[in-house]
Amino acid sequence: MGVKKREKDFTVWERIYIPEIVKGLSLTLKSMFKPKFTMKYPEEKFIPSASYRGRPVLVMENNGEERCVACGLCSRVCPPLAIEVQASETEREKERYPEKFEINMLRCIFCGFCEEVCPEEAIVMSKDYDLAFTNRADAIYGKDKLLVPVNQLYDRIEFLRQYK
């Protein structure tokens, strides 16, 4: 029975073990004094770049109307079925508008498919990431929470036009 040779046999120095421990300890000691990258969250906030996918929001035009025409494609493509849309008729040129637009943020997985499929550039991923709820009902975001003025979303829209 041949003894299986290791890829690298330890030298005597390594087999004493203590020096190797010292090496390891010095490594951890060094890293103890390295600068930390942790952000002190509520005081210090992370401002994501345009490519960040935060919570999906509906684009509100400057006249206060939503872009959304309630086509339901976001709801159709949504893998976790988070989006519920109820369309209704409006006198506006677009004919349809969402009478109800709800995203269940407990279901949302921030995949961004809704934004990708939207034919009207009406739903985009925002930079909001701090979402917390204390009950299931609060996690369902209606139009009141979803509508965001378009001027806060320009860089994401620009990003989409460039890379989508």
């Binding site: 951890t28 890293s31 103890m32 004094f33 390295k34 930390k36 990258f37 942790t38 002190k40």
Partner: peptide
């Protein structure tokens, strides 16, 4: 805290 420092974190603060 020490474990956090070793791992480049802050630890409970």
């Amino acid at each position: 805290r020490v474990s956090a420092w070793v791992q480049n974190r802050l630890g409970p603060n």
